[in-house]
Amino acid sequence: MNESRLEVCRPSMPYEESRILLVVCYSIVFAIGLPANCFTTWLTFVQIRRKNVLAIYLFGLSLCELMYLSTLPLWAIYVQNEHRWEMGSMACMLTGYIFFCNIYISILLLCCISIDRYVAVVYALESKGARHQRTAIFITFTLFSAVLVIHCPVFILPDGKQISNLTTCFETLPLNLQLAYFNLARFLIGFAIPCTILIFTNYKIFLNTEQSISLGKRQKAKVKYLAIAIITIFLICFAPYHLVLLIRSINFLLHQNSSCTFEHRIYSTSAAFLCLSTANSVADPIIYVLASEHKSRRVPCVKTISDQLRAYR
Results as ranks from 00 to 15, higher is better:
88 G>F: 14
295 K>I: 12
99 F>V: 06
198 L>T: 06
146 A>Y: 15
255 H>R: 07
196 T>R: 11
12 S>F: 13
1 M>C: 09
230 I>F: 00
71 T>R: 09
9 C>N: 03
247 I>M: 14
280 N>S: 14
126 E>L: 10
312 Y>I: 06
101 C>Y: 02
55 A>N: 03
34 L>W: 09
267 Y>F: 15
155 F>Q: 08
242 H>T: 03
105 I>Y: 03
167 T>E: 09
256 Q>R: 15
48 I>P: 00
209 T>A: 13
131 R>S: 13
85 W>A: 05
280 N>L: 09
43 L>E: 03
207 L>A: 10
47 Q>N: 15
269 T>D: 11
9 C>R: 04
219 Q>C: 06
285 P>M: 08
42 W>E: 00
248 R>I: 14
52 N>D: 01
96 G>E: 01
22 L>T: 00
253 L>N: 08
89 S>L: 13
240 P>E: 10
192 A>T: 01
182 F>C: 13
149 V>I: 15
72 L>R: 07
131 R>A: 13
244 V>E: 07
157 L>S: 15
303 K>W: 09
38 C>N: 08
121 V>A: 05
106 S>C: 14
21 L>D: 04
254 L>G: 00
91 A>C: 00
69 L>C: 07
154 V>C: 10
297 R>V: 14
283 A>D: 02
147 V>A: 11
170 F>N: 03
140 T>R: 04
85 W>E: 03
267 Y>S: 02
42 W>G: 03
196 T>E: 12
212 S>L: 12
237 C>F: 06
219 Q>H: 06
279 A>N: 09
312 Y>G: 02
193 I>A: 07
89 S>M: 07
170 F>M: 09
141 F>W: 06
146 A>R: 03
173 L>G: 01
16 E>S: 08
247 I>D: 03
302 V>F: 13
244 V>I: 15
292 S>T: 13
122 V>G: 04
37 N>H: 12
89 S>H: 03
58 L>E: 02
122 V>E: 05
217 K>S: 08
223 V>D: 00
35 P>E: 09
142 T>P: 00
46 V>F: 09
100 F>V: 06
141 F>I: 12
88 G>N: 05
33 G>Y: 05
200 F>E: 08
282 V>P: 03
134 R>I: 12
115 I>L: 10
52 N>M: 05
28 I>N: 00
66 L>K: 10
219 Q>P: 04
23 V>W: 01
55 A>C: 08
277 S>Q: 11
72 L>G: 01
190 G>N: 05
155 F>D: 05
263 E>V: 12
26 Y>K: 03
80 Q>L: 13
155 F>G: 04
174 P>F: 04
58 L>D: 01
273 F>A: 02
235 L>A: 13
311 A>K: 03
289 V>P: 00
130 A>F: 08
115 I>C: 11
312 Y>Q: 07
193 I>P: 05
60 G>S: 05
195 C>G: 11
221 A>G: 06
260 C>W: 10
280 N>W: 10
188 L>F: 14
222 K>Q: 13
103 I>E: 01
